[in-house]
């Protein structure tokens, strides 16, 4: 069977290997992605982001369970950090998702950031496309634990869930730019802890000020209190995610298309950047130049990074 047919048919080993080829940046994966592309565009992509330890994995686990009860198939991409020193990583998001290991309707893949900033990996969008083509109805993307400015997930997902816990920072944190602006849905997890109501109130203020409406959006971000480990509040979260999807798909609106265009633009730019970079490297090699030599020239002050880069592209 052809590799594309195998992926579309949901063959686990083939999908797993292609995901790895993408992550390892094998040139052959580009062709596979190209041929898979006509099969993509059906999955609802839902991003989960927030600081380390707020309960993203547990929420993803719970939401996946709800989708399974609804007979929807689920793909999960969960990102953990790569060591900047050794390149190694411990990928532990699966620990919270054990109940899905034997369910053929759920495909889970752990990813390491491999030096990428922004909360996702370089490969995430391409991997979403593979799981989409493999027929997953929803793809849940869990970012690495993030801080204030890692907003990439909002460009990859149709629906972004920002997860917080009570007592993290004061109300000034809530009006800062960056990550607080990307949530379509805010989750206050571990809501049994002290200060949950206060966090919810602060978020309500934030929403009233209208962070999102500035962009002409009619969707009013929702706030949901959950206790992921006990499963409390998950019904409401699930319902709200579905409401957001319905909002995007509302008849006569272009919202879904806009979300898809945003994603696609990001991907196109990513591929372009990647190809241009590779082409530049090939030129350097073809001319028998070496990066090391260029670095030496720059360090010796015979040239500068700006001129060297321009020369590579111009010649």
């Amino acid at each position: 069977m052809d590799i594309i047919q195998q992926i579309v048919a949901g063959d686990v080993r083939t999908i797993a290997r292609v995901l790895r080829d993408i992550d390892d940046e094998l040139p052959s994966s580009r062709e596979v992605l190209q041929r898979l592309y006509p099969h993509t565009g059906k999955a609802h992509v839902i991003g989960f982001t927030g600081s380390p330890g707020v309960g993203k994995s547990s929420l993803v686990d719970q939401v996946a369970t709800h989708y399974r009860k609804d007979s929807k198939t689920v793909g999960i991409l969960a990102v953990d950090p790569t060591s900047p020193f050794t390149g190694g990583a411990i990928l532990g998001d699966r620990i919270r998702m054990q109940r899905h290991f034997l369910d053929p309707g759920v495909f889970i893949r752990s990813l390491a950031t491999r030096g990428q900033f922004g909360g996702l990996t370089r490969s995430t969008n391409d991997m979403v496309n593979v799981l989409d083509a493999a027929g997953k109805d929803v793809v849940l993307v869990e970012t690495v634990g993030v801080g204030q400015d890692e907003v990439e997930v909002a460009n990859s997902a149709h629906t972004t869930v920002l997860v917080m816990i009570p007592g993290m920072g004061d109300d000034i944190q809530a009006i800062k730019a960056g990550i607080m602006e990307i949530g379509n849905i805010f989750v206050v997890n571990k809501a049994d802890r002290e200060g949950s109501r206060k966090t919810v109130r602060e978020l309500m203020n934030l929403i009233e000020i209208g962070v999102r409406r500035r962009n002409g959006e009619e969707w009013e971000p929702r706030i949901i209190e959950t206790e992921a480990v006990k499963g409390r509040g998950i019904d409401k979260l699930y319902e709200t995610i579905e409401q957001h999807k319905a909002y995007l798909l509302a008849t006569g609106s272009q919202r879904w298309r806009e979300a898809v265009e945003k994603r696609t633009r990001l991907q196109l730019l990513g591929v372009l950047k990647d190809l241009a970079f590779r082409a530049a490297l090939e030129r350097i090699e073809a001319r028998g130049d070496s990066i090391d030599e260029m670095v030496r020239r720059i360090v010796d002050r015979q040239s500068d990074p700006y001129s060297v880069a321009r020369q590579i592209l111009e010649k």
Binding site: V12, R17, S83, G88, I90, L91, Q98, S110
Partner: peptide
């Protein structure tokens, strides 16, 4: 991890079936 490998750790109490399913999905 310190040797530069990517390690998937799934915690305790795994059945053989769960372990193999994870190994396949994670390649």
């Amino acid at each position: 991890r310190d040797a530069g490998f990517e390690v998937i750790y799934t915690g305790c109490h795994q059945t053989p079936e769960q372990i193999v399913s994870t190994a396949l999905q994670e390649d």
